[in-house]
Design a protein around this nucleic acid. Structure first.
Length: 426
RNA sequence: CGGGAUGUGGCGCAGCUUGGUAGCGCACUACGCUGGGGGUGUAGUGGUCGUCGGUUCAAAUCCGACCAUCCCGACCA
């Protein structure tokens, strides 16, 4: 991609609407544009990151045996009445009417729709277990949207729903999802904790949250400093615990001591049990030929929220530092004097072609600007590796490799192997 | 919904106290110089001053209502 052709409206000053670092950087890096409170357009650069995360999520969900579906965003009132949620849910459920005055809502979640599909299409225990997922836009009319994409009203979510014959089967699917989530977050490259959580309004037996640790997180979690153990302090507060006094205590799992940290909830897995299946009469015939109510689980990942969470955890005073697996581009070729010097232009074009053929997603900064402007933008948008081609190339056919982490080296332009090495150990 | 604040070109801001018909920096356009850390010269483009109403000869400025946005709280699979 030629940078001169890319819609990339970077900003020097952050708009006053932004408070937290991820929001500021997403606006400054030209990733998003606000349309209304909590509602954003994803610009090309932001969308690339969003898609990268989405693809990792999709790959791991498929690998876990789940199947992808795509459900409607607009859902009829009747389904929501079956679970009484049409009345139970507050104004965060955005209700709308069609031209025939029929009631609908914008889907904040999809238990009703998916359960309706299963009860109509699955009749035998032989067809189970099933785990269906989608990656789709959700709408929740939050009381107070904030922090940009982190808590928007419209957001992208991966939601999966499993249907099992019994608790043992549900437990198996639940653990498979737990593992898939760990792999997803590891692949994205984020530091996270898994905490026991309040299962809240969605109900159900038990649930765990996946938290990305970050100072601007909305949740306060008690974590062990030397194990995976964590617990959402919401639960502890309900039990009357004094949160601050827990800091420094031995961890309940016997490993390390407790620290109070801020986390961003990016995933939540639930064992729902029979609650929705009971309400919606979702049952199949068991081995004895008797109707048996299904056990359900649901498993969510905030895909768009992960973009913000990744930035919260990976930035410096110059901008974003993308983990390699989700970076919008792998390499930025910073061509100094591209518009004036034939040699620079053709050398950078050749390099671009070569790297692209090798499978890298490459950006070529062919703009008329100087080194400073180009580097500042590249650092702001967080490209992992910069290749600078300028004076040193003209003098002795050398280029400089400069990573976003600060490593740099000067190499002959023919030494592409060095570039490969840069990515190998990441 | 309670508390606080803000709304002036794409972004950041000044002007408002003391009314006189809109300005600065960045960005943007053209041309030149420059070309390894947001460089520079000349000439330009772009604004119903959130909206509606009121006061006044005259409103970005004073008054009122409303709207939008942000922060804290309550809320939240």
């Amino acid at each position: 991609m030629l940078l001169s052709k890319l819609l990339l409206p970077t900003l020097k000053d952050s708009p006053q609407e932004a408070e937290v670092i991820s929001h500021k950087l997403m606006l400054r890096a030209g990733m998003i544009k606000k349309v209304a409170s909590g509602i954003y357009t994803w610009l090309p650069l932001g969308l690339k990151v969003l898609r990268n995360i989405e693809n990792i999520v999709r790959e791991e969900m498929d690998a876990s045996g789940a199947q992808e579906v795509f459900m409607p965003m607009v859902q009829p009132k009747e389904l929501w009445e079956e679970t009484q949620r049409w009345d139970k849910m507050g104004p965060e459920l955005l209700r709308i009417k069609d031209r025939h005055d029929r009631d609908f809502c914008l889907g904040p979640t999809h238990e009703e729709v998916i359960t309706d599909i299963i009860r109509n299409n699955v009749k035998s225990y032989k067809e189970l277990p099933l785990n269906l997922y989608q990656i789709q836009t959700k709408f929740r009319d939050e009381v107070r949207p904030r922090y940009g994409i982190m808590r928007g009203r419209e957001f992208l979510m991966k939601d999966a729903y499993s249907f099992n014959m019994d608790e043992e089967s549900l437990q198996e699917t639940y653990l498979a999802m737990r593992e898939a989530y760990k792999t997803i977050l590891e692949r994205i490259g984020l530091e996270f904790k898994i905490s026991a959580a309040d299962s809240g309004a969605i109900g159900g037996d038990s649930s765990e949250e996946f938290h990305v640790l970050a100072d601007n997180g909305e949740d306060t979690i008690a974590v062990s400093d030397s194990s995976e153990f964590a617990i959402n302090t919401e639960l502890l507060l309900k039990e009357g615990e004094d949160i601050q006094s827990l800091e420094g205590n031995p961890s309940p799992d016997g490993k390390g001591t407790i620290q109070i940290k801020k986390g961003i909830e990016v995933g939540h897995i639930f064992k729902l049990g029979k609650i929705y299946a009971d309400d919606m009469k979702a049952n199949v015939l068991n081995k004895e030929g008797k109707a048996s109510t299904l056990y359900m689980g649901c498993y969510g990942i905030g895909v768009s929220r992960l973009v913000a969470a990744a930035i919260e955890q990976n930035n410096d005073e110059r901008g974003i530092i993308w983990p390699h697996n989700i970076a919008p581009f792998d390499i930025n070729i910073i061509a100094i004097g591209y518009d004036k010097n034939e040699e620079i232009a053709s050398a950078s074009q050749n390099l671009y072609k070569e790297l692209t053929q090798m499978g890298y997603d490459v950006l070529l900064d062919d703009r008329k600007d100087g080194y400073g402007t180009k580097m500042k933008d590249s650092e702001l948008i967080g490209i992992p590796l910069n290749i600078i081609i300028g004076k040193q190339y003209l003098e002795n056919k050398e280029i400089e490799l400069k990573s976003r982490n600060g490593d740099s080296s000067t190499n002959p332009i023919s030494d592409i192997k060095t570039i490969l090495d840069f990515f190998k150990d990441k």
